[in-house]
Simulated assay, not measured.
Amino acid sequence: MAALGQSIRRSAIGLGLFAIITGGTIAVTQVMTEARIDQQIARAEARALFEIIPEQHHDNDMLADAFQLPADPERGFNQPFTAWKATLQGQPVGLILPVTAPDGYSGDIKLLVGIDPAGEVLGVRITSHKETPGLGDKVERKKSDWVLDFNGRALDNPAAEGWTVAKNGGVFDQFTGATITPRAVTKAVHKALLYFRNHQSDIQLQSGDANPQEQS
């Protein structure tokens, strides 16, 4: 009986050690994986910034000229976030907002929306998604030209009812076999334009385009 008890205790200790080691390995792997994913997203964002506003169109360091803007849950910005500005000879030429479309077919779709001072879209780029290959992934610039249709668009071009896919009465194309993904991205771009319109004072003050003393 004593031998049996010792055997059971050894087995229990062995199982406990195995569980601790396995749990630790999984935790470390998860942390490392998340860090790599964050790095990949950061690199994708950096590339996308210069695709939306090419270097020859601004003379500031956009990556360094990042600033915080306030949350606006009604328009999909649930917490304060970092935006980037582009200037040329001290004058603003564009603002890039990070946007999340929460209603993609397979989850969140992260994108950047560039907007000029007049409120027109300079460009849109997808930086992260899990949409279906061959269908929803056509929102990526490298897979199709679909996102280029946003260039030059504004809140009145088209009117509010046009900011959806053609299947729902809008002006933007959907993909064959995939409507949810382009509809989600279109909705997110429209919300970015609404945010830009409704937060002009925040954008001017926090990007350094206005003097706070002149606002009083």
Score class of each variant (00 low, 15 high):
147 V>G: 01
7 S>K: 14
200 Q>W: 04
57 H>A: 15
78 N>W: 07
103 D>N: 15
36 R>E: 15
159 A>G: 08
25 T>A: 13
4 L>Q: 14
152 G>C: 01
88 L>F: 13
65 D>V: 05
102 P>W: 00
71 A>E: 12
5 G>D: 13
62 M>H: 04
172 F>S: 03
216 S>M: 13
31 V>R: 11
151 N>G: 10
49 L>K: 01
84 W>M: 07
153 R>F: 08
29 T>F: 15
99 V>K: 06
119 G>K: 00
205 L>P: 00
186 T>N: 04
169 G>I: 05
79 Q>G: 09
9 R>N: 12
113 V>P: 01
21 I>Y: 10
71 A>Q: 11
215 Q>I: 14
152 G>R: 02
21 I>T: 11
193 L>W: 01
100 T>P: 04
112 L>D: 00
71 A>H: 07
187 K>N: 15
53 I>Q: 01
93 V>H: 03
34 E>C: 06
77 F>C: 03
200 Q>E: 10
78 N>S: 10
143 K>F: 08
183 R>W: 03
169 G>T: 08
27 A>F: 12
107 G>R: 06
163 W>V: 01
27 A>L: 14
167 K>M: 10
146 W>G: 01
107 G>C: 06
22 T>F: 14
56 Q>A: 13
88 L>Q: 14
94 G>C: 01
83 A>M: 04
94 G>A: 03
133 P>W: 00
99 V>I: 07
40 Q>V: 10
98 P>F: 06
16 G>A: 10
98 P>R: 08
57 H>R: 14
213 Q>R: 12
187 K>M: 11
163 W>I: 02
204 Q>K: 12
135 L>V: 05
212 P>M: 05
100 T>M: 09
175 F>E: 02
14 G>L: 08
19 A>M: 11
154 A>H: 07
178 A>P: 01
203 I>P: 00
38 D>G: 10
112 L>M: 02
198 N>M: 10
134 G>R: 08
118 A>H: 11
91 Q>H: 11
137 D>V: 05
52 I>T: 05
53 I>P: 02
135 L>M: 06
68 Q>M: 14
162 G>M: 02
42 A>M: 07
1 M>E: 13
130 K>G: 09
165 V>I: 15
63 L>V: 14
141 R>V: 10
38 D>Q: 15
100 T>D: 09
191 K>Q: 15
106 S>M: 11
61 D>R: 10
62 M>V: 12
23 G>W: 05
161 E>R: 12
55 E>L: 14
132 T>R: 01
202 D>W: 02
146 W>I: 00
167 K>D: 12
34 E>N: 14
